[in-house]
Design a binder for these strands. Structure first.
Lengths: 183, 183
DNA sequence: GAATACATGTAAAATGTTACATGATTTT
DNA sequence: AAAATCATGTAACATTTTACATGTATTC
């Protein structure tokens, strides 16, 4: 699926593996992320399948850049994927819930510390969505005029915001439940 | 991390790989799932590390059962993991958001169909959390008297419920946004 | 008669993570 | 003087998924 994240970006502009890592980190990281090495490996694979092509751009005092472009075949593959419905729920993994599920015999204080720590992390993340993510998208909309793209990005930002609000509310409930059992 | 799901269950009772798959499917699947083959492979690895041990229990007309038990070393490993804080946010992947992010150029009708389909799937999942999951936990609490365990399981169920409510609310927002652009 | 439940696994492929290697330039 | 940025990648490892293989008993 990283495949489609890369094709998606290359459908906007030509880029190197390094560029693509930066792009992922500042935009899709909250719902799709990847290590630099995985990006390089996947690009190589996509080029073998002729979904993208590359050109070496020499540089002075820096390693040459390998700049990728999407091919017609790549564009078609991307469009096909975008149009085919998902049809099922995403399977997800949540380490905190796994720990909570099995920690009936643990110290309540230890668990409460963990829940408070998680709460502060989620509050920080929520603030990011509400300030910098918001501004980056608004600025992109104003400077490029790409209304539609900005609208879609804004919806993914809004998901993040709502997810964090929900997570914090749940943590507060969990803390309350556990506090009722420790005093 | 599947490791700890398996150790967690084996800390309650002895079980085969087959049993463990059933247990995962009816309890942790919404925040931790695994294929049958991965469970068998992981059990083998855990036995090599002496975190669990196994005995063959012969059967008639059925394949022999390989029943696993947790060892003292395994119990310690589980307890250590439960007590060490996570300290960071979980990274997650959400295919629907990835598609949405890149679908500014797609047909709005196609996207709306997808959003409506997702909404019905999440509504079904929400109902499951509110009815059968709820009852299973209540029944377990009543029949075993394991109050604490039931309390923890209930918190993980509640997370599922809140997550689905949030997801549905977001889908409704997204549908509204997109409908404003299609009519 | 077909599907599901019981019960084990192997093998191959795909996916993802971590560590290593190189080396100049710029910022702290 | 150390760390971060730019830019490439390889290699080893760990995790997860998909497909295959076997065979009885029970339920629909």
């Amino acid at each position: 699926m990283l495949k489609y994240a890369l094709l998606g970006f290359l459908n906007y502009l030509d880029a190197t593996g390094y560029d693509l890592k930066q792009l992922l980190d500042v935009s899709t990281a909250n719902f799709w992320h990847a290590e630099q090495s995985q990006i390089y490996a996947t690009l190589k694979k996509l080029e073998n399948e002729n979904l993208i092509s590359s050109k070496i751009v020499p540089q002075e005092n820096r390693p040459d850049r390998r700049v990728y472009s999407i091919t017609e075949k790549g564009k078609q593959d991307l469009i096909n994927w975008l149009n085919e419905p998902i049809g099922e729920l995403e399977e997800r993994k949540e380490t905190l819930l796994l720990k909570l599920f099995f920690s009936a015999g643990s110290e309540i204080e230890t668990l409460l510390t963990e829940l408070h720590l998680q709460k502060s992390l989620h509050e920080k993340q929520l603030e990011l969505y509400q300030t910098s993510s918001r501004e980056i998208i608004a600025q992109f909309r104003n400077s490029t005029g790409l209304e539609e793209d900005a609208r879609h990005w804004e919806l993914t930002r809004r998901f993040g915001e709502m997810f964090e609000e929900m997570y914090i509310a749940w943590l507060e409930e969990a803390i309350q439940t556990m506090e009722g059992k420790s005093g």
